[in-house]
Simulated scan of single mutants.
Amino acid sequence: MRAFVFPGQGSQKVGIGAELADASKAARDVFAEVDDALSQKLFDIMREGPEDQLTLTENAQPAIMANAIATLRVLETDFGVALADSAGAVAGHSLGEYTALCAAGAFDLATTARLLKLRGQAMQAAVPVGKGAMAALLGADIDKATALAEAAAEDEVCEIANDNDPSQVVLSGHKGAIERAVGLAKEHGIKRGVLLPVSAPFHCSLMQPAADRMAEALAGTPPSDFAVPLFANVTASKVTDPHEERQLLVEQVTGRVRWRESVVAMRADGIESFVELGGKVLGPMIGRIDKEAATSSLINMDQLEDFAREIA
């Protein structure tokens, strides 16, 4: 059994989606539908930049989703591989959970684009620029990262945002606390702490205003039934109930992305291979979590064609 997985923020770069759009009408149709839904020429920014516009959270989130869904649509339309027939589960990293839900039929494409646009705007607005920060801890497991976060907090917010794999954990919170954590990393047996070039402290309690906005939005556009189970970020467990998933999407804004635990749970549930659509970030993470898991990343037409031939 295999899972289709979808990347999160940071996987964007100028030119994203261009090769697929040049090669496939199915991809072009996805990008056009997203542009229409947002009343914005987002694909022009994806194809041509400028980079500072693409990396804006409110643009990066729908752009990464659009590229991944375009990859899936090409796989389905041009190569005859349907997700419902080929995957036993879906999952996504942070915003990728919305992509996974779109892929599984819980949200239509236009709704997903609008929700992610709003999510990006809300997350950016939740904390004034310069007040928050995030840092990646390299060579840190969850226990070391937890101890470091507690030591660095000093009455400020310093929380685990992403438990990515056994060697990488991301902290989020007030800028001062995160900078202290970077300075204290080696004392806690952690190889290195690196400040991340982000515009807001995602996945921590400072994001509560954004969670409130998403609760309102999702109350009006809740997910529908999905074709295959989803493994949710905040619980690292299988979800099949749309009502439960709506609440988990709200909690996800302030909650930890439990990616390592999600992969472990999927493996325990019988997932043997992981197929990343539209990126090549999650595959290496999964390989570090479980060396026995098979991984592949599908980005271009040749990779999609090879995958379709392999599973035929």
Rank of each mutant, 00 (worst) to 15 (best):
M1E: 08
M1W: 06
K13W: 15
K13T: 11
V14H: 11
V14K: 06
G17R: 00
L20Q: 10
A21C: 13
A21E: 12
D22F: 01
A23K: 07
K25D: 15
A26N: 04
E33L: 12
D35P: 13
D36N: 14
A37S: 11
A37G: 09
Q40C: 14
Q40S: 15
R47V: 05
G49H: 06
E51V: 12
D52M: 13
D52C: 13
Q53I: 13
Q53F: 14
L54S: 10
L54G: 08
T55S: 14
A70I: 00
L72M: 08
L75D: 08
L75S: 05
E76G: 13
T77K: 13
D78H: 02
V81M: 06
L83F: 07
G88A: 09
A89S: 10
V90K: 03
G92L: 07
S94Y: 03
L95P: 05
L95W: 01
Y98H: 02
A100E: 01
L101Q: 04
C102P: 04
A106R: 08
F107H: 03
A110V: 08
T111F: 05
T112G: 09
T112E: 00
T112C: 09
R114N: 09
R114Y: 02
K117R: 13
Q121V: 14
Q121C: 15
V127M: 09
P128Q: 13
G130D: 15
K131N: 12
G132L: 12
G132T: 06
A133H: 04
A136N: 00
A136F: 05
D141Y: 12
K144P: 01
A145H: 11
A147P: 13
A152K: 10
C158A: 04
E159A: 12
A161D: 01
P166S: 11
V169Y: 02
V170Q: 04
L171Y: 03
L171P: 01
G173T: 10
I178T: 02
E179F: 13
A181V: 14
G183C: 09
L184A: 09
A185C: 05
A185K: 14
G193Y: 03
P201Y: 13
P201K: 03
S205N: 05
L206K: 00
P209M: 12
A210E: 07
A210N: 07
A211Y: 07
A215P: 07
A217F: 03
L218G: 08
A219Q: 07
A219R: 03
S224H: 13
F226T: 05
A227R: 02
F231L: 07
A232N: 04
T235F: 05
T235V: 07
A236F: 07
S237P: 05
S237L: 15
P242I: 13
H243N: 15
L248A: 02
V263P: 00
V264K: 06
M266S: 02
R267S: 10
D269M: 11
G270Y: 04
S273Y: 06
E276C: 14
G279A: 10
K280H: 14
V281P: 03
V281D: 02
L282W: 07
G283W: 09
M285W: 12
G287W: 15
I289D: 00
I289H: 00
K291H: 15
A293L: 11
T295D: 01
S297I: 06
E305K: 06
F307K: 02
E310K: 13
